[in-house]
Amino acid sequence: MEKLMETVVAILGGSKVTLELFLITLIMALPLGLLVSLARVSGLKLLSRLMELYIWIMRGTPLMLQLLFVYFALPMIGIRLSDITAALLAFTLNYAAYFAEIFRAGIQSIERGQYEAAKTLGMTYTQTMRRIIIPQMIRRVLPPISNETINLVKDTSLIYILAMNDLLRVARTIVQRDFDMTPFFVAAVFYLAMTFVLTWIFKRLEAHYGKYDA
């Protein structure tokens, strides 16, 4: 019993790193993804193409490779980042690309009539996007964003390769030390708890944004 408590406390310590990486990535990648999606649909050819290239690279290579690149390759050209900053950079750039594609699909699913109504009322493109299109888009993309967010919780475990003591690495260390599988179960419970909270939050958000549906 005492040993279990010790395991839980150790893993709790590790989950601080996990949560930090998760929350900061989310807070940075969502707005960045929105900006990228707006650039993609802006009609500015060069900008749109550039974003397409960025998304292709981020989605076309493993997140693990991107992590290793930021961590090992950037110092070679003189850019030295702390462990957590390196992880945050790779995660944010990667997730922003996925979020951008979800936002873009959401924006493009809004009926042309909404743009036309706003235009005939004299609204500018910026006003139309900010007041009419994006609020409706957010409602529609909540389910896929929820999915991606839950993926992010689990992807945080990839930072074990940077030798950072996140939730899973702490658990594995104890398993290897004691030859006891319990820490893995404790880790699983921690992940499940986090995704449970996220699922609940997104359910509330969907209900909130769904109040105007028939």
């Binding site: 036309e116 009322l121 944004y209």
Partner: peptide
């Protein structure tokens, strides 16, 4: 010119009153 469409094109995320007030406030 004001325009009325076949498909109404009201803003679904706003109440009736908000639909009327949006453009005068923004524009």
């Amino acid at each position: 010119m004001g325009m009325v469409f076949q498909q109404f094109n009201l803003f679904p995320h706003m109440t009736v009153l908000e639909n009327l007030m949006e453009a005068p406030i923004q524009v």
